[in-house]
């Protein structure tokens, strides 16, 4: 891509927990329009790096900068599911709509534009029929698609995905990748952590291999 705007700039970045460094002295740029796949073994630091980009983990040293006028509330994020969420009493619609909370300082009521956008995102992930269902009663794959719908609602310029196809059947996996590729074609920048190397390589415009990064360090 020519003259692509840089969105995320990592300089001398070190990330980790306690005394353990998972990412060390990393220089890396993510540009507008990238479809970046992050692959590597368990524990190689893929999720940690994504959390760093998402602003959930402060760098031990170095910096992660949002560039090109990218604001945090233009980012959509699909985290791995937590224990708390598995038995959470909330309707699918409530969860998807909560994506808009970051975009307004004060949002006591959702407007019809919010509801329409939420419906679009639910349609994309084939969850619109589950709109009134209770999140804790859904199957693992349905839950995952609901969380993707929420991430799509929040994503205006950048979409961060942490193992988006975990627990999905082959059909849903296919749909998931098609939705992501469609968004990418429309100009969305995508950063995805995945184990699914083959599919990742098909669609991705760039691949970041954490196995190689750590071996290079050694």
């Amino acid at each position: 891509m020519v003259n692509a705007q840089t969105l995320i700039k990592c300089r001398q970045l070190t990330l980790g927990y306690g005394s353990k460094d998972l990412v060390r002295d990393l220089d890396y740029d993510i540009n507008e329009g990238d479809y970046l796949c992050i692959v590597g073994h368990n524990g190689s630091g893929k999720t940690t790096f994504l959390k760093g980009i998402a602003g959930l983990l402060s760098p031990k040293s170095g910096s992660i900068e949002l560039c090109g006028g990218l604001n945090r509330n233009q980012i959509g994020y699909l985290p791995q599911m937590t224990v708390v969420q598995k038995d959470f009493p909330a309707s699918v619609e409530e969860i998807v709509l909560s994506a808009f909370q970051g975009k307004h300082r004060l949002l006591p009521f959702y407007k019809s534009a919010h509801r329409e956008r939420a419906m679009e995102c639910m349609a994309l992930t084939r969850t619109e029929s589950l709109r009134k269902s209770c999140f804790r009663e859904l199957s693992g794959g349905q839950k995952q698609r609901v969380l993707l719908a929420r991430a799509l609602c929040a994503a205006e310029r950048l979409l961060l995905l942490d193992e988006p196809v975990t627990g999905l059947d082959p059909e849903s996996t296919g749909t998931m990748y098609r939705v992501i590729e469609d968004l990418h074609q429309k100009g969305m920048t995508v950063v995805m952590v995945t184990h699914d190397v083959d599919t990742a390589l098909d669609d991705a415009t760039r691949v970041m291999d954490f196995n190689k990064i750590s071996t290079k360090e050694r």
């Binding site: 998402a54 602003g55 909370q101």
Partner: peptide, 10 residues
């Protein structure tokens, strides 16, 4: 519901 998502999205 999801403190991480809320924080990551502003």
């Amino acid at each position: 519901f999801d403190e991480n998502f809320a924080q990551a999205t502003g």
